[in-house]
Every structure is written in C-alpha cells, then in structure tokens.
Amino acid sequence: MTDVVLRTDRLFKSFGALKATNDVSLDLRKGEIHALIGPNGAGKSTLIQQITGHLASDSGAVSLMDEHLTDVGPAERARKGLGRTFQISSLAMEHTVLQNAVLGALGQRGNVMAFFKPVMKDVRLVSAAKAALAQVGLAEFATTRTADLSHGQRRQLEVAVALTLKPKAFLMDEPMAGLGLEGAQQMIGLLTELRKEAPILLIEHDMDAVFALADRISVLVYGEVIATGTPEEIKVNPEIRRAYLGDEVPA
C-alpha cells in the first residue's frame, strides 16, 4: 500500500477515566477525502490534535509518507507536511489577511531568523501567499485586518494558510461549521479543488457535505472506529444508522 500518505497506528488517549480515543488506526490515501464522522464527544478533535502533535498520545504511532512523526512536536509535524485548519478559527487577528498567509509561507520556508529585510517586500513569500489567497477567493481582502473578516472568510483564510505550507496532507476540523448554506457550498467547491493538491482528512458534522465529498468515511463512536467504508457502505450499515445517523440519511 504505497499510496498511503498519512497513517495512525493504534492511537490511544485518555483523560482520566474517559477514553477519548481508543485504538484508532486510520489511513489517508493519495488523492482522497477521508471523512471522520461521529457524535459530539466521540473523540474526533482529540484524534486530530494527536495527529498534529498538539496533544501527546498515551500510545500509538503517527506516520506521514512512512516517516514516523510520533516523537516530534507540532512545529516539526507542520514542517514535514501536515497542514491543518482549526475547529475554531485560529489566526493572528491583528495582522492583515496577507500577513497571515505570509506567515504560513514563512513556515514553509523554515528560516524565520531574518531581522533586516522587510518580510512584506519578499517577492517569493508574498506571491506564494497571494496565490493561496486567490485560490480560496480572498485575494481582494489581502489588506484587511483579520479581525475584521466575517466568520466564513476566516475559515477560508485558515485553508489559505494551510495551503501556503504546501502540505502532504490536510487535516480539517469542521471547516463548514457555522458557514450557512451558501458558504458551505463554496467550501465544498474549495475542498474539491484542494484534494488535487493533497489528500484531506475531514472532520465534519454537515452530512450533506460529507456524503458529497468523501471517498471513504470512518465512524468514530466513544473514541473507537466502528466502521470505515465508502459513503454507500456507511449509509446502509445498520449499526451506524442506529449509533449515529438515525433515520436522517440523505437520499
């Protein structure tokens, strides 16, 4: 299986008696969108944090392109190619939109110890940042202060910053949350474009989006993966219907 980009191998994480993730083994393959669904508190965000290294796992391993990431911190993991977006937008609010994107491009370059050259006049960084902004549709907001962006625009900017990292895999934690119908449609269009650049591990509550986008779906319940399969397989799986989907399966 050489087309596996990102793999988690038997990840565990407990908070006291609560098993947030329990023996989670997943993989993300080249070109795919792999959606992770499950009820609130199922451990989806914990899992993402374990993959990005923001949360130390109790046990288990994470590897990217067959390289072990388990022992390195979040900054190294990002540099090695994990581009993430956050459930709650996490941006430098006082900076402009373009500056946030340039920050990502700086991270991709790796060397930040430059003290004399004005960073916003660095043509390569700025053009990489502008390209990412254009790709998510924020080009005209480059000089806007990030705090002045709408909720949906911040979500787009999160994606743009992840893009500037030229990641090998995207981890997206509820990119559609709070977007509304039109915004969600836009984001679906954007993710369809992004998957050409790198595969996406997608956490999402919006079932229409998940079934429209995902090649594979894994269902997480009480920290355990109870099933992985194509959207069709997941739809008809009676256990999942009972545990999570109820009868609201989209036609």
């Binding site: 006082e94 920050l103 700086l106």
Partner: peptide, 20 residues
C-alpha cells in the same frame, strides 16, 4: 522583518505559529 512578523503572531496566537 520575517522575525518580527512571526514574533508578533506568536503573541497573538501561539497555536497558529506552531501549526505553520
């Protein structure tokens, strides 16, 4: 400079800086 941008971003949002 690049350093100044990153330092100031780290003050505003440490997680963001880590994840780039």
């Amino acid at each position: 400079s690049a350093f100044g941008l990153a330092l100031s971003a780290a003050r505003q949002n440490e997680t963001r800086v880590l994840s780039v």
